[in-house]
């Protein structure tokens, strides 16, 4: 799971998606594409953004929910907290502590 999170964060467009979702949760693909184009100068296509969202979702950083006929995307910071606990947590483990496993 940690590998998925690092991979998801390694791309600037995906980090920008998280920036925008942090500002407002519950965005459609259309709104996200507009924000990325107008605020981040992104030239990525809608399809490309959709694929970036799938990577973020696989890493647990974005959740997609259906509300009626619409699909909204929310930011979920939980995987980041797990990651940082590995090095910044105060549980006294040595560096070989197991990374957070498959849970979210």
């Amino acid at each position: 799971m940690a590998d998925d999170v690092f991979k998801a964060l390694a791309d600037p467009t995906r980090r920008a998606i998280l920036d925008e979702l942090r500002e407002r949760d519950g965005q459609t693909l259309f709104e996200l594409c507009g924000r990325l184009a107008m605020r981040h100068g992104s030239s990525a296509s809608r399809q490309a953004i959709s694929q970036h969202l799938a990577v973020l979702e696989a890493a647990g950083l974005v959740r997609t929910r259906r509300e009626g006929r619409y699909k909204f995307h929310d930011f979920d910071p939980a995987p980041l907290e797990h990651l940082l606990d590995r090095w910044l947590g105060d549980d006294g483990d040595d560096g070989s502590a197991v990374a957070p496993d498959g849970r979210d």
Binding site: L29, F30, S50, R69, K71
Partner: peptide
């Protein structure tokens, strides 16, 4: 339906 789902 596909357009509405993606907010387009």
């Amino acid at each position: 339906r596909a357009l509405v789902a993606d907010g387009i």
